[in-house]
Design a protein around this nucleic acid. Sequence first.
DNA 1: TGACAAATGTAAACACTGTTCACATAATAA
DNA 2: TTATTATGTGAACAGTGTTTACATTTGTCA
Lengths: 200, 200
Amino acid sequence: MKKEKKTYHHGNLAESLLNAVDELATKFGLEAVTLRACAKLVGVSPSSAFRHFSDKRALMTAFATKAIHQLAHAMALAKEQANSNKEDAFSAVGLAYIEFALDKPAFFRAMWREETIYTNDENYIQATNLLSAHLQGGFAETIEDTDPESFSSQELLAWSSVHGMANLFVDGPVGKGETKKQKIIMAKDMLKVLSKAFLQ
Amino acid sequence: MKKEKKTYHHGNLAESLLNAVDELATKFGLEAVTLRACAKLVGVSPSSAFRHFSDKRALMTAFATKAIHQLAHAMALAKEQANSNKEDAFSAVGLAYIEFALDKPAFFRAMWREETIYTNDENYIQATNLLSAHLQGGFAETIEDTDPESFSSQELLAWSSVHGMANLFVDGPVGKGETKKQKIIMAKDMLKVLSKAFLQ
DNA sequence: TGACAAATGTAAACACTGTTCACATAATAA
DNA sequence: TTATTATGTGAACAGTGTTTACATTTGTCA
């Protein structure tokens, strides 16, 4: 889709660098993502990255922001699908959250690294706000939401449990030997129990 | 100035290095923990570390293992205290989990870094097993535990929610502007809702 | 005791890393 | 056109983990 003539100016280096982060992270893990490796992958000198990102941290922040948007999108899709199938939207959204972590562990890790990204970056904060809005959107049918601005105890429990299981799968000792299918079943079972807390 | 009795051999360098990791992590964050800085803090050459740890990763694994034991200890203490006060052991253990993350965020982060530690290290695995045993111990009075080996859906929900909230506090957007006291209240409220799911 | 092997610490190198800076080149505005 | 701005480069710098040959201490056994 894009022309690949090697000009002195790359054209859209910022986005290409983000794609390089994507590729390296999925292939070799977050820890293997290095500024120089990204530059090499794009076919550009290492120092050129600094024309578009003030820092490596800024680059990782942009990547994290992108990842959050992807997750939010996956959740929105899951909710839509559940609604049209007249299924439980809450469980569908929660499951999408966990499934994203299973499918793209490096992306999921990148999103939540206070020490590696600028968590007070404007775009990043905006993305997390969008994400929590999607979460509340998924909960809306199940949980009575009085205040759309802050999280209720129920909503906090829902987010925590889903976020927690995702983390336990990705970076914890839970479900270590098991297949993805089995982990999905574990998630579904947990969500089922969770629903009980909301029904009364 | 007087001569410090610097012996050529340090004595217990391995443990001293772990203490250095501790100090640097709490003072400047996990990302600031560097092998050379640890060596300098102990007053020893960088290469000496490799006589006791094969890797930086091995050092961080030992640190993570130590941190997990600390967390397990805090949970055991909380349970004991709750029992002698005839209070809810489950909530106490869960709260201890979250409070540990709030008090020692760098330690909590270090425990769950698949890419930075050797998660199949024997001692590390043993520590996580101990931790999950303590979790189940805390749940025992509240949750009907049929199989002590594997986790039931209820137990998984309990661990996930507590682990999730801890992570959302430490590395996520939740409770960002709030004090520790407020966060503890949020945790207690969540645990209260959670109990409902178990009382049926 | 003395000799010698095993542990443990060191200095110097190595290939990496992020980052800066003076400079080169291209795109745009005048 | 020319001047200005944006973007990419190459060479350097300090800092990183790690290895290597060597130095020092400790422990063992004659």
